[in-house]
Computed example of a mutant assay.
Amino acid sequence: MVSATVGGRPFDFSREEIERRMRGIQSEPIREHLVEVLGTVYPPKQVLATITGWDRTSFTTMEAQRVLSRVGFVCRRAGTVGGGRRAWVVDQASDGRVEAIAEPEVPDTRLTRLETQLAVAQEAIASLAARVQKLELAAR
Protein backbone atom coordinates (compact mmCIF):
# COMPACT_ATOMS: atom_id res chain seq x y z
CA MET A 1 0.00 0.00 0.00
CA VAL A 2 1.37 3.39 -0.96
CA SER A 3 0.22 6.56 0.72
CA ALA A 4 0.88 9.80 -1.14
CA THR A 5 -0.70 13.16 -1.86
CA VAL A 6 -1.67 14.01 -5.43
CA GLY A 7 -3.10 17.42 -6.18
CA GLY A 8 -3.75 17.90 -2.47
CA ARG A 9 -5.73 14.66 -2.17
CA PRO A 10 -4.68 11.45 -0.44
CA PHE A 11 -3.73 8.44 -2.56
CA ASP A 12 -3.82 5.03 -0.83
CA PHE A 13 -3.68 2.11 -3.23
CA SER A 14 -1.76 -1.14 -3.49
CA ARG A 15 -0.34 -2.59 -6.68
CA GLU A 16 -2.84 -5.46 -6.50
CA GLU A 17 -5.79 -3.09 -6.18
CA ILE A 18 -4.62 -1.03 -9.17
CA GLU A 19 -4.19 -4.20 -11.24
CA ARG A 20 -7.65 -5.38 -10.22
CA ARG A 21 -9.27 -2.07 -11.18
CA MET A 22 -7.42 -1.89 -14.53
CA ARG A 23 -8.29 -5.45 -15.54
CA GLY A 24 -10.33 -5.31 -18.76
CA ILE A 25 -9.80 -1.56 -19.29
CA GLN A 26 -8.84 -0.75 -22.88
CA SER A 27 -5.77 1.42 -23.29
CA GLU A 28 -6.10 4.85 -24.78
CA PRO A 29 -3.54 5.98 -27.36
CA ILE A 30 -0.05 6.48 -25.93
CA ARG A 31 1.30 9.96 -26.58
CA GLU A 32 4.51 10.59 -24.67
CA HIS A 33 4.45 8.59 -21.43
CA LEU A 34 3.31 5.09 -20.58
CA VAL A 35 3.00 2.65 -17.70
CA GLU A 36 2.64 -1.11 -17.99
CA VAL A 37 -0.13 -2.76 -15.98
CA LEU A 38 -0.83 -6.48 -16.40
CA GLY A 39 1.07 -6.60 -19.71
CA THR A 40 -0.84 -3.67 -21.23
CA VAL A 41 0.61 -0.19 -21.66
CA TYR A 42 -1.53 2.79 -20.66
CA PRO A 43 -1.06 6.54 -20.39
CA PRO A 44 -0.25 7.17 -16.68
CA LYS A 45 -3.04 9.73 -16.36
CA GLN A 46 -5.57 7.17 -17.64
CA VAL A 47 -4.54 4.72 -14.92
CA LEU A 48 -4.67 7.27 -12.10
CA ALA A 49 -7.99 8.72 -13.28
CA THR A 50 -9.51 5.25 -13.67
CA ILE A 51 -8.55 4.01 -10.22
CA THR A 52 -9.34 7.23 -8.33
CA GLY A 53 -12.24 8.68 -10.30
CA TRP A 54 -10.43 12.05 -10.33
CA ASP A 55 -10.62 14.45 -13.25
CA ARG A 56 -7.42 14.26 -15.32
CA THR A 57 -6.98 18.02 -15.25
CA SER A 58 -6.59 17.91 -11.47
CA PHE A 59 -3.15 16.22 -11.57
CA THR A 60 -0.11 16.10 -13.81
CA THR A 61 1.43 13.22 -15.73
CA MET A 62 4.48 13.54 -13.46
CA GLU A 63 2.31 13.13 -10.36
CA ALA A 64 0.67 10.05 -11.89
CA GLN A 65 4.08 8.59 -12.74
CA ARG A 66 5.42 9.37 -9.27
CA VAL A 67 2.71 7.44 -7.43
CA LEU A 68 2.56 4.58 -9.95
CA SER A 69 6.35 4.17 -9.70
CA ARG A 70 6.14 4.13 -5.90
CA VAL A 71 3.56 1.33 -6.12
CA GLY A 72 6.02 -0.63 -8.27
CA PHE A 73 4.94 -0.02 -11.86
CA VAL A 74 7.50 0.95 -14.48
CA CYS A 75 6.80 4.27 -16.17
CA ARG A 76 8.57 5.13 -19.42
CA ARG A 77 8.63 7.59 -22.26
CA ALA A 78 7.20 6.40 -25.56
CA GLY A 79 9.06 6.68 -28.82
CA THR A 80 9.61 4.95 -32.13
CA VAL A 81 12.25 2.65 -33.58
CA GLY A 82 13.04 1.66 -37.17
CA GLY A 83 10.02 1.47 -39.41
CA GLY A 84 8.02 3.74 -37.11
CA ARG A 85 7.28 0.94 -34.64
CA ARG A 86 6.29 2.21 -31.17
CA ALA A 87 8.80 1.55 -28.41
CA TRP A 88 9.79 2.37 -24.86
CA VAL A 89 12.58 4.91 -24.76
CA VAL A 90 15.37 3.68 -22.51
CA ASP A 91 17.85 6.50 -22.98
CA GLN A 92 18.28 9.54 -25.14
CA ALA A 93 21.87 10.66 -25.66
CA SER A 94 22.88 14.32 -25.91
CA ASP A 95 23.47 13.88 -29.65
CA GLY A 96 19.83 12.83 -30.10
CA ARG A 97 20.43 9.10 -30.56
CA VAL A 98 17.76 7.04 -28.82
CA GLU A 99 18.18 3.58 -27.39
CA ALA A 100 14.83 1.83 -27.22
CA ILE A 101 13.20 -1.47 -26.39
CA ALA A 102 10.74 -2.38 -29.13
CA GLU A 103 9.23 -5.19 -27.10
CA PRO A 104 7.41 -3.97 -23.95
CA GLU A 105 7.62 -7.53 -22.61
CA VAL A 106 11.38 -7.26 -22.00
CA PRO A 107 11.97 -8.22 -18.35
CA ASP A 108 12.60 -5.27 -16.09
CA THR A 109 15.46 -4.98 -13.66
CA ARG A 110 15.86 -3.17 -10.37
CA LEU A 111 18.32 -0.73 -11.97
CA THR A 112 15.84 0.17 -14.71
CA ARG A 113 13.16 0.85 -12.11
CA LEU A 114 15.52 3.09 -10.17
CA GLU A 115 16.47 4.96 -13.34
CA THR A 116 12.78 5.45 -14.16
CA GLN A 117 12.04 6.73 -10.67
CA LEU A 118 15.01 9.09 -10.86
CA ALA A 119 13.80 10.49 -14.20
CA VAL A 120 10.32 11.04 -12.76
CA ALA A 121 11.81 12.76 -9.70
CA GLN A 122 13.97 15.01 -11.88
CA GLU A 123 10.98 16.06 -13.98
CA ALA A 124 8.92 16.70 -10.82
CA ILE A 125 11.71 18.87 -9.35
CA ALA A 126 11.96 20.87 -12.58
CA SER A 127 8.19 21.36 -12.57
CA LEU A 128 8.22 22.51 -8.95
CA ALA A 129 11.09 24.91 -9.63
CA ALA A 130 9.12 26.43 -12.52
CA ARG A 131 6.05 26.82 -10.27
CA VAL A 132 8.10 28.49 -7.54
CA GLN A 133 9.64 30.87 -10.06
CA LYS A 134 6.20 31.75 -11.43
CA LEU A 135 4.87 32.43 -7.91
CA GLU A 136 7.91 34.57 -7.08
CA LEU A 137 7.40 36.63 -10.24
CA ALA A 138 3.69 37.05 -9.45
CA ALA A 139 4.50 38.20 -5.90
CA ARG A 140 6.68 41.10 -7.15
Rank of each mutant, 00 (worst) to 15 (best):
V2K: 08
V2C: 08
T5W: 02
V6S: 01
G7A: 09
G8E: 08
R9A: 15
R9Y: 14
D12Y: 02
F13M: 13
R15E: 14
E16M: 03
E17K: 11
E19C: 15
E19S: 13
R21N: 00
R23I: 01
I25F: 07
S27V: 08
S27R: 13
P29V: 02
L34S: 14
L34H: 02
V35A: 09
V35M: 08
V35P: 05
L38W: 02
T40N: 14
T40W: 06
Y42G: 07
P43D: 15
P43Y: 02
P43E: 14
L48W: 01
T50G: 07
I51D: 02
I51R: 01
D55Y: 00
R56V: 11
R56Y: 01
S58H: 03
S58F: 00
F59I: 06
T61H: 02
M62T: 15
M62L: 12
A64E: 07
A64I: 06
V67S: 06
V67Q: 04
V71C: 15
G72I: 07
F73K: 07
V74H: 12
V74N: 10
R76K: 12
R77A: 06
G79Y: 06
T80W: 01
V81S: 12
G83K: 08
R86E: 10
R86A: 15
R86G: 06
A87D: 03
V89Y: 04
D91Y: 10
D91V: 10
S94G: 04
D95C: 12
D95A: 09
R97S: 15
I101A: 13
I101V: 13
A102F: 01
E103P: 00
P104I: 05
V106M: 11
P107K: 10
R110N: 11
E115M: 10
E115Q: 12
T116L: 03
Q117C: 13
L118H: 11
A121F: 07
A121G: 04
Q122C: 11
A124M: 12
I125T: 10
I125F: 08
A126H: 08
A130V: 01
A130W: 01
V132E: 12
E136G: 09
E136N: 15
E136I: 06
L137Y: 07
A138F: 05
A138L: 11
A139M: 10
